[in-house]
Design a protein around this nucleic acid. Structure first.
Length: 109
DNA sequence: CTCTTGACTGAGG
DNA sequence: GCCTCAGCCAAGA
């Protein structure tokens, strides 16, 4: 594999796909896993191109467990419903038991 | 090459 | 605990 051919965005998509069903993670966690802990913003920005891919962007939230990117989804509460459909409790765009449903990619590795 | 844009994060008040 | 400020860094024009 030549990571050189994969853009930072592509790496984000790869990691996002590794997120277990019913779990969530933060942009910073993904960024840190990629070796760019300072590029958490880029992770979210990359998600803009996640449409049309197998990337569960709805499982990616900010460090507070807040669904900051819900505005980028079609519906007004689509992101929340997707999470709740997977067993994740979400109230007012805030993930409940965030520390419990939180999934750290680096931890799995 | 330069400038702008962000689905972020951490530190300080 | 909340709000504000600044740093961070890759991609696109």
């Amino acid at each position: 594999m030549k990571p050189e051919t994969l853009s930072f965005y592509d790496k984000v998509y790869e990691v996002a796909r590794l997120i277990p069903h019913g779990r969530v993670t933060s942009y910073g966690a993904i960024a840190k896993y990629l070796g760019a802990a300072r590029s958490a913003r880029m992770v979210g920005y990359a998600m803009n191109g996640s449409h049309g891919k197998d990337v569960p962007a709805h499982r990616v939230v900010n460090r507070k467990g807040l669904l900051t990117g819900k505005h980028h989804f079609e519906g007004t509460n689509l992101m929340q419903q997707l999470l709740e459909s997977e067993g994740v409790t979400v109230v007012d765009l805030q993930v409940q038991n965030f520390d419990t449903v939180f999934w750290d990619p680096a931890k799995v590795l």
